[in-house]
């Protein structure tokens, strides 16, 4: 088949970037909806990060710990030592990578089954909440506050929401490029081999432990800046908002429903589900708070019933089947 110079997927990606880049102009004077847009993109970012580690069946339910490592490290460094969050972010990345390395190594080296690892991660995410709530340096349950009154780009202090929007957009685009790179690279192939059959992959010469740990560490390193971003954007971090176990569960739900080993599945589900909660909160009485989660649950049930491997994989299969059917129809024509 002739290779087209401009694939349609590039066009779609470019169109999406333009739409996202122009969105703040459309939301001029509506700070709430701009906030919703930032929040949604934040969730898209996190779901995509989670999907990277899940490519090797490292189903980590502890990603909020890495998120919190990014947020708390940069904030503590800024509040106590005056180090700018632009640098503190890398400190957060380092802490998250160390945590992920320890956890991932214990999971992969001792060959825990995926489910044991899930339960271990759930337990650890509770542990991190307790730690953050009981240490003075993390500000107990009240959390930490960053106070500033004027824009100071050197310290990541921006009063306008638009600036934060574009920072998040750039982060998201960067993450999508990195994910695409991982999916297309040899490493991505190893990840997929480990996902399909760990023993066969090991027999074929893939260093299973190394790649499993690597997947988790990469994913943790990518999610930590999202924590730093949130600390600077919300100017306030607390264990309930950043470390809660429910956030882990939602992240996992979005990613798996979107479809693992795909580029656009996980962020798509976050894009669909996150604004839902804000709409419910904005337009319905406070008595009905939580309705969005019921809707998410019911939609998730239907998705799982009809799309075994997530929306994106279902779509890809459908496309391939259609293509094959067309090929068969084309080829059978002249022969008869």
């Amino acid at each position: 088949m002739k290779q087209r110079l401009l694939k349609p997927s590039y066009g779609i990606a470019a169109g999406l970037i333009v739409i996202f880049a122009l969105l703040p102009l459309g939301l001029e004077g509506q700070p709430y909806w701009l906030h919703v847009a930032i929040y949604t993109m934040w969730w898209m970012y996190m779901s995509q990060c989670w999907a990277i580690s899940a490519q090797t069946r490292m189903y980590s339910f502890v990603h909020t710990a890495f998120l919190g490592a990014g947020a708390y490290t940069s904030t503590i460094l800024f509040l106590n030592f005056g180090i700018t969050p632009w640098l503190g972010m890398f400190g957060g990345v380092l802490v998250a990578m160390i945590l992920a390395g320890i956890l991932g190594w214990s999971g992969a080296r001792f060959r825990m089954s995926p489910l044991s690892f899930v339960v271990l991660c759930l337990a650890m995410s509770f542990v991190f909440v307790v730690f953050a709530e009981s240490m003075t340096i993390t500000g107990h349950e009240e959390g930490l506050r960053i106070v500033f009154f004027k824009t100071d780009a050197a310290n990541w202090h921006f009063l306008s929401k638009e600036t934060h929007y574009y920072i998040m957009l750039i982060m998201l685009i960067g993450l999508m490029i990195v994910s695409q790179f991982i999916l297309r690279s040899k490493m991505g192939l190893y990840f997929k081999a480990i996902f399909e059959n760990e023993r066969a992959a090991a027999a074929a010469g893939v260093n299973v432990v190394r790649y499993k740990v690597m997947a988790l560490v990469i994913s943790a390193a990518l999610i930590a800046p999202a924590g730093t971003f949130w600390a600077q954007y919300a100017k306030f971090i607390n264990p309930e908002g950043l470390l809660s176990v429910n956030m882990n569960i939602l992240m996992v739900l979005y990613s798996t429903l979107g479809g693992l080993h795909t580029l656009w599945g996980p962020p798509l589900m976050a894009l669909l589900f996150t604004p839902l909660g804000e709409v419910v909160r904005a337009y319905l009485p406070s008595r009905l708070y939580g309705l969005e989660m019921i809707i998410v649950g019911v939609v998730a049930l239907f998705c799982i019933l009809y799309m075994r491997w997530g929306v994106a994989n279902w779509f890809n299969d459908w496309k391939r089947e259609r293509h094959e059917a067309k090929m068969i129809a084309d080829s059978s024509g002249p022969e008869t």
């Binding site: 189903y59 996992v252 739900l253 798996t256 939580g290 019921i294 019911v298 998730a300 049930l301 075994r308």
Partner: peptide, 20 residues
């Protein structure tokens, strides 16, 4: 993982049904 998510979806439905 998918069946795990199925139960998680049920957890969300039950939990927030109780909350409401």
């Amino acid at each position: 993982l998918m069946l795990f998510q199925l139960f998680v979806a049920w957890i969300l439905v039950i939990e927030f049904f109780c909350v409401i």
